[in-house]
Structure formats: C-alpha cells, structure tokens
Simulated assay, not measured.
Amino acid sequence: MPACLILWLCRPGWSIAGEDWQARAWSTFYYTDDVALFSASRRLSLNADPTQPALDDRLTGQGSDGVFEPGLKLSRNFRTDFGTTRLEASGDGYVYLTRTQFTHGTLRLQAQQAFTDTTALNLIYYYSPDLYLGENLVRQPGLLPAAAEPDAEAGPLAPEVLTSNIVSLRLDQSLTSTLGFQLLARYGSRRYDPAFAQRDLDFWTLGPHLSWKPLAELTWLVGYHFERGLADGRRQPWLADDVSYDNNFVSTELEYEFAERNRLTLGLHYELNDWLSRQARDARYGTCENVYQGEILLSHDFSALTRLYGGVQYSSRSINTDDPAITNLNVAFGIRMDF
C-alpha cells in the first residue's frame, strides 16, 4: 500500500500548488529505563495513539535499553477544484539495541483537503504491525503455541503480539488569526495473536483540540479525547480477561521561542482508563488506571532546514489499589532535516 501511494503521488498531469515535493527526515536516539513502557509513553499525545494496549503488571519492569528511531515523511500539494489537496506518507521505526524483540515500526498516511485558508478536512490512516508487548500468561490452553514456556506460579507463557489499524477524520477550523479549533473522530481495531484472541477489540474516539497563539513566539495547544474499547473477552467470562475500557485523555503542550532559533516545548498529559470488566475473577475488575506524564524538549534551528533537539520524558502509572506506581524515564537526542 505505501509503494502504491508513492507511485500515485509521482504521476504527472496535476497542477501543482507551490513545491512539487516536500520531505522531512529525522533520526533520534533514546535511553529508556523500561523497554516495555517506552512505546506507550512515546505515543501519549493528541496526534498519535495515546490509548496503547492494556499492559499487565508482569510485562513492565523489563529493564533499560537504547533505542534508535529513524523516520521519513514525504508530502505533495495539488491545486484542485476544491482548493488545495495535500498528501502525506510517513513512517518511523523504534530499533532496540539489545532487546531486539521489542523493535517495531509504524506507518501513517494522510490526505488533507483545504477548502479555504481557514477550513480543512483530514483523513488519516495509522498502521502499527506486530507490536511485541512481552511474555504473558496464556489463558486459552487449546491455542497455546508450541514454543510457549511454563511459569511455575502462573502457568504457560507466550509472546503477546498485536497489530493496530486506525482511521481518523479531523476537521481543522481557524476561528480567528490566533485561535484554531480541531474536532477529531477515529475508529480502530487491535488484533492479537491467537493465544491472546480474547483481547481483540474495536474502539472509537471523539474529542476537540484548541490551539492559541497569543504571541508570535508562543503557541499553546490543549485537547481532550473520550474513547471506548470493547474486547472479545467480555463474551468469554470463563477466561476472566476482559480488557474493555472507557478512556479519558487530556493533553496540553506549550511551545515558546525564547531566543532566535531556540525553542522550549513543555507537555503535560493525563489518562484515565476505567476498566469495564464485570468478571469478579478478572484482575481488572473494579479497577482504573491513572497515567501522568510530563516532558520537556529543547531545540535549536541551525538553519531553516535543520533542527537539533533533546529532551526528557517521565511518566507514572498507578492502579487504584495498594500496588506501587510504575514509572518510565526516557531521554532523547536527535536531528531533523527538511528537503
């Protein structure tokens, strides 16, 4: 599918608005103190996939590692009878240096139709294949893979792997010269390997975003998402593993250009997962998960085309029980180039 899109973008016969092509490449190196939580922490933002798959406690605390992220985005603008059309294809990967089983990649395709200078509609497809979460307890012995290993306390274990497909529709509307509004709706699915098929779920999301630029050097973004996910496990009470949820997500980011070509970005995010399981033997029965995350990023533009950046991200996850909070620290350093 990505190759077909790129070939289609290259075809002649269009009236081009501005530059034919735009490209952005980036390369980032991370240190993380928990390889199992790194992916979920990195995607906790309004324009990514903040409601990552349910993570059992046994999957966290897997140790630290270095992670390398290469990324590339290609885009092209077209003048049409409806305004300006912009097509984008971007992909990135997280390559773990020693815990290579956690290595994975994502793909994002986006089509934007700008009807006027103030109104645009975006159609977005997000694909995350074969995301490895760790070795987890298999609750369906009849589907136990041959390579599964036993656990003396819990039973047989197998790799928990899933694929996510998400389609989003976002309306962008400028209200004034300094105030912008977005409305996001999305629908998606997460599909697991057969050994964890009870966790297969479909979900939908709805939420508004608001951006404000009170000064030329200052931009503030705030948004809220409500999401509901319903898993197959709710129809299989004998497995006592229902990961259905209601999710409330609030995020805010502040970007300040404190000196010429130097920017400071601060982000705060909060997520509340209310687990919907009605099975008394389920570990999630009657519980909810609170996630708090903060981040700081400094960047310097060497030119209009090259940016150097570095930052720190910290998150804390807790259940409404006596269990201690689970934390994750990520440190990043990278470079971005536009062509």
Rank of each mutant, 00 (worst) to 15 (best):
L175F: 08
L175Y: 03
T176R: 01
S177G: 04
L179E: 09
G180Y: 00
L183C: 11
L183Y: 14
L184I: 12
R186N: 12
Y187A: 14
Y187I: 13
G188Y: 07
S189N: 09
R191H: 14
D193N: 11
D193E: 11
P194K: 12
P194R: 11
P194E: 13
A195F: 10
F196L: 02
A197R: 15
A197G: 09
A197E: 14
R199N: 05
D200A: 01
W204L: 08
W204Q: 02
L206G: 08
G207Q: 11
G207T: 07
L210W: 08
L210K: 10
W212P: 13
L215Y: 08
E217P: 00
L218R: 04
T219E: 13
T219V: 05
W220G: 01
W220Y: 09
W220L: 15
L221Y: 13
V222A: 15
G223E: 05
Y224C: 05
H225C: 02
F226Y: 15
E227D: 11
R228V: 09
A231K: 06
A231R: 02
A231T: 01
D232G: 10
G233Y: 09
G233W: 07
G233P: 11
R234M: 09
R234V: 00
R235F: 01
W238Y: 11
W238V: 02
W238N: 09
A240E: 08
A240G: 02
A240K: 03
D242E: 03
D242R: 00
D242C: 04
D242H: 00
V243A: 03
S244Y: 02
S244N: 04
Y245H: 14
D246A: 10
D246N: 15
N247R: 08
N248P: 01
F249Y: 15
T252K: 05
T252G: 14
E255I: 03
E257N: 05
E257S: 03
F258W: 05
F258I: 04
A259D: 06
E260G: 06
E260F: 04
R261C: 02
R261M: 05
R261F: 06
R261Y: 06
N262K: 09
R263W: 05
R263K: 12
R263T: 11
T265L: 05
G267F: 05
G267C: 06
H269S: 15
L272S: 06
L272P: 00
N273C: 04
N273T: 05
D274A: 13
W275S: 05
L276W: 04
L276S: 10
R278S: 06
Q279C: 02
A280G: 01
R281A: 15
D282R: 06
D282H: 07
A283D: 11
Y285C: 09
Y285K: 04
